[in-house]
Write a protein that binds this DNA or RNA. Structure first.
Length: 869
RNA sequence: GCGGGCGUGGUGAAACUGGUAGACACAAGGGACUUAAAAUCCCUCGGCUAACGCUGUACGGGUUCGAUUCCCGUCGCCCGCACCA
């Protein structure tokens, strides 16, 4: 037995079947033990898993198996984020149905995930494209519609001309569609929206309660919500024949600078601009010009500030008799605040750029600390920092904060057009979540448009509104809309002809509640609240940081909306969040500059230099930088091949070793081989250890002491590995397991006594359990060899003997002036004066002191000694 | 520009609340076993030095008996947001 190498190809499928047959990972909702819910972000069924999945699911599986070993009732499900555009694209390319393509991919990926030996409860598997799932989403949509959490409104939307669909603001990155990469256009469409902005304040404030989330993600969400407090302020328009409007409302966060105002600015999309442009062709041209730049130019920041003088003037609200010009300016956004501002060039860079260009006045009203009020001037840079107000009549001398308060009170007490002139207001950058998508492969929005009754929800008894099967994709655009009959219905209320809504929901809706559905995946209601409330929030959620805003913010909103409609009784879906790093690999290029896959090349190393050549042609290949694995750079490694060659345990182990999980990890051939070697080492160790049982032992004097030392290491490892797994420091857990293995291997070589042999056997057994969350198949094989009953998958995490963690002696480093010169071993807790005396009698210290008395001796008991001379 | 993070050997990295810098692994070099290879085992491995030693955690200062860790400044890299009034 011991001579045989461990063969993962035989053993891994065997144990996977054993777990399946024993239903080892099926979780019962009525299990009374403490619950623990661990979830990895579910995958899009692209057809193949990649190394990023291997890393993600390995981490989740370690957490799941560890907590199961700690005696908890663990929920660890898996499903498929199965709606979305790639299926439609595949349908066009291959003339198949998006559904059949998707389900084939699911089968293929499921087989791959199963080969990884994950402790997943597959009885809870869900696919969001199944009516079993999306009917509940439709049902909740209706609940939310009735609760006033959904609206339909006409708005300017981001239109992706390649995917021919609408995108949410969050899905536009650098002016391009997040998926297609095409420059996004602006269009006016009637859309369905979730009223996420109603929850802006709550979503912002609750971030503080998410203490187990990375600070980075919380910051990103905070910025995205973008809260700003300011003042809505009315400017009176001087009577003019150009307009009937009597006032302009602006939003400002700097009302303290009102005395420095030199113009009022309007967005090119402001209603007043539109009205003025109707009778002013030059202004109309200017607006068109702004739009051209607004969408086509990516580098908005570099675009020059431009303005157009409308000829209107407004009364200066605090300087009697003064008036200000009204400009339309290209940098003012319609969808923030009121779409109008007042410009204070001295203290805002954009305003300053505009003022310099058109010769408007620049009057400083905030004096930097230490500056001289008489001589202070603004050059080409606006002053935006702290200071005291000056040049501002009744605000003079106040701090910015105090001036803001005072001026708000001042305007609050005055009226323009019968309204309060100034109102304190909080603004958010977060917009409502537009969910209409003009696509077939998504969850149908369950409403109809009746000629008589208007837009009304489909009755719940008629759900699901199923997607038609017989669709064609020969025309661009929405196949659902093109379907000859699907959308034609009769109103369930009045019987009049009606039209089904042909928009489907953004796929981010699907992923906003799947974690709740997993708690009762077969229920005939969206959730079973009592069950969901018991499992949720997810204790540990693990996934990529690329979802820091979109998915995580939507899920937080949706959970609140589900709470408002009685489907769950909590607000925050994810208690602990962990964002893992990417998997990277070296890149390779041929002389012709084409990317080459790692499997096609041969690397030769001589000393420290590595060269590569093509496996077949022998042509030289240049080794490039380390990049995220991607198809385009061909630096991908296929998990299937790795599992076939080395086994799943090796792949899992390597993905957990070396790099901290939140950082990127580099996939290397040498690294995998190291992991594979370790697998064999453990196998050999366990097999050799077991032979000790059959041999007679000799008694030696040092035996007891050696055994105790070994047992200390064993217990420290059990303790440390557990701590590291709980803290998700998998790389350190791995390092500790290496140390334990090294110690046991060494002990095995020299052992002679009974006690040491017993300790080695104890170590082999505990090592097996420590290993089981990471290399579960190997651990089962070792468990079997050790002759233990049952499965290690069901074994309890070893108890730590607290006495083994504390040593009764301690070795203190002895420093002289902060440099280590000697060490001294004393009983733990030896008082400082005693230690000092011992240290001063050390040969090394006596030699260095040369008879002189030390200036000072610092003794930190059980830690360190520092002699200062 | 704003916000956040990071900078430690040839490489990935450890170092708990300020207390022996480089655990653990990879790579490299040397040796043992072998007809040979693979596998395995042993040794070396931050820099300078023959050695005693000296020096070293991006760089420059500071606090401290003692700093990878705390503070100030500089440089570099990464990520997010970006005309948000």
């Amino acid at each position: 037995m011991s001579g045989e190498r461990y063969n993962p190809r035989e053993s891994e499928p065997k144990w996977q079947k054993t777990w399946d047959d024993a239903k080892s990972f099926v979780t019962a909702n009525d299990d009374p033990r403490e619950c623990y819910y661990v979830l990895e972000m579910f995958p899009y069924p692209s057809g193949r898993i990649h190394m990023g999945h291997v890393r993600n699911y390995s981490m989740g599986d370690v957490v799941a198996r560890y907590h199961r070993a700690r005696g908890k009732n663990v929920l660890h499900p898996m499903g498929w984020d199965a709606f979305g555009l790639p299926a439609e694209n595949a349908a066009i390319e291959r003339k198949t149905h998006p559904g059949s393509w998707t389900y084939q991919n699911i089968e293929a990926m499921k087989a791959q995930l199963k080969s990884m030996g994950l402790s997943i409860d597959w009885t809870r598997e869900i696919a969001t494209c199944s009516p079993d799932y999306y009917q509940h989403q439709q049902s909740m949509f209706i609940d939310m519609l009735e609760a006033g959490l959904v609206t339909r409104k006409s708005s300017k939307v981001n239109w992706d001309p390649v995917d021919m669909t609408v995108l949410a603001n969050e899905q536009v990155i650098d002016g391009k569609g997040w998926r297609s990469g095409a420059p996004v256009e602006q269009r006016e469409l009637t859309q369905w929206f979730f009223k996420i902005s109603d929850f802006a304040e709550d979503l912002l404030e609750a971030l503080d309660t998410l203490t187990e989330w990375p600070e980075k993600v919380r910051t990103m969400q905070r910025n995205w919500i973008g809260k700003s407090e300011g003042l809505r302020l009315l400017f009176e328009i001087e009577p003019s024949d150009k307009t009937d409007a009597t006032s302009i409302e602006v939003f400002t966060t700097r009302p303290d600078t009102i005395f420095g105002a030199s113009f009022v600015g309007l967005s090119p999309d402001h209603p007043l601009t539109t009205a003025l442009a109707a009778s002013n062709p030059a202004l109309a041209d200017f607006v068109v010009e702004c739009h051209r730049h607004g969408t086509a130019t990516e580098t908005l920041e570099k675009a020059e500030k431009q303005g157009f003088d409308t000829g209107l003037r407004v009364k200066h609200p605090v300087i009697a008799g003064a008036t200000l010009p009204v400009y339309v300016a290209n940098f003012i956004l319609m969808d923030y605040g009121t779409g109008a501002i007042f410009g204070c060039p001295a203290h805002d860079q954009r305003d300053l750029d505009l003022a310099r260009k058109y010769g408007l006045s620049v009057k400083p009203v905030v004096l930097p600390p230490g500056a001289d009020a008489a001589s202070f001037e603004i050059g080409n840079e606006a002053y935006v920092d702290a200071g005291n107000i000056f040049n501002s009549d009744f605000l003079d001398g106040l701090s910015i904060e105090d001036a803001k308060k005072k001026i708000a009170e001042y305007f609050g007490a005055r009226t323009v057009d019968g309204k309060s002139q100034g109102q304190v207001e909080v603004n958010y950058r977060l917009r409502d979540w537009g969910i209409s998508r003009q696509r077939y492969w998504g969850c149908p929005i369950p409403v109809i448009h009746c000629e008589v009754c208007g837009t009304i929800p489909v009755p719940k008894k008629d759900l699901p509104v199923k997607l038609p099967e017989d669709v064609t994709f020969d025309k661009p655009g929405n196949a659902l809309d093109h379907h000859p009959t699907w959308k034609r219905v009769h109103c369930h209320q009045c019987g009049s002809p009606a039209r089904r809504e042909t928009d489907t929901m953004d796929t981010f809706v699907d992923s906003s509640w799947y974690f709740a559905r997993f708690t009762a995946p077969h229920a005939d209601t969206p959730t079973v609240p009592a069950v969901a409330n018991r499992w949720l929030p997810v204790d540990q959620y693990i996934g990529g940081v690329e979802h820091a805003i979109l998915h995580l913010l939507y899920s937080r909103f949706f959970t609140r909306a589900m709470k408002a409609t009685g489907h769950v009784d909590l607000s925050e879906p994810f208690k602990g969040l962990f964002t893992q790093g990417m998997v990277t690999h070296e890149t390779y290029k041929s002389a012709a500059g084409e990317w080459v896959n790692p499997t096609e090349i041969l690397i030769e190393a001589t000393g420290d230099t590595r060269t590569a050549k093509h496996l077949k042609t022998g042509a030289p290949i240049s080794i490039g930088s380390v990049e995220k694995m991607s198809k385009s750079k061909k630096n991908v490694v296929d998990p299937d091949e790795i599992v076939a060659t080395y086994g799943a345990d090796t792949a899992r182990w390597f993905m957990l070793s070396d790099s901290p999980p939140e950082r990127d990890v580099q996939w290397t051939e040498a690294g995998v081989e190291g992991a594979s070697r370790f697998q064999q080492r453990v196998w050999r160790l366990v097999n050799e250890a077991i032979e000790l049982r059959d041999r007679t032992a000799e008694a030696t004097a040092s035996d007891e002491k050696e055994a105790l030392g070994l047992r200390r290491i064993i217990h420290r490892s059990v303790h440390g590995v557990g701590q590291d797994i709980e803290g998700l420091r998998f790389n350190r857990a791995v390092a500790q397991i290496y140390e334990l293995t090294n110690a046991l291997t060494k002990a095995l070589q020299g052992q002679t006594g009974t006690a040491t042999r017993a300790a080695i056997l104890e170590g082999a057994e505990k090592l097996t359990v420590l290993l089981s969350p990471m290399m579960p198949h190997l651990a089962e094989s070792c468990w079997e060899v050790l002759g233990k009953a049952g499965l290690v998958a069901d074994a309890r995490w070893p108890e730590v003997d607290g006495a083994m963690l504390v040593d009764d002696t301690v070795t203190l480093p002895v420093q002289v002036n902060g440099k280590r010169r000697a060490e001294i071993t004393v009983a733990k807790g030896t008082p400082a004066p005693e230690v000092e005396a011992l240290v001063l009698s050390l040969d090394e210290i006596v030699r260095i002191l040369e008879g002189k008395a030390p200036k000072k001796v610092v003794v930190v008991p059980d830690r360190i000694v520092n002699v200062v001379v």
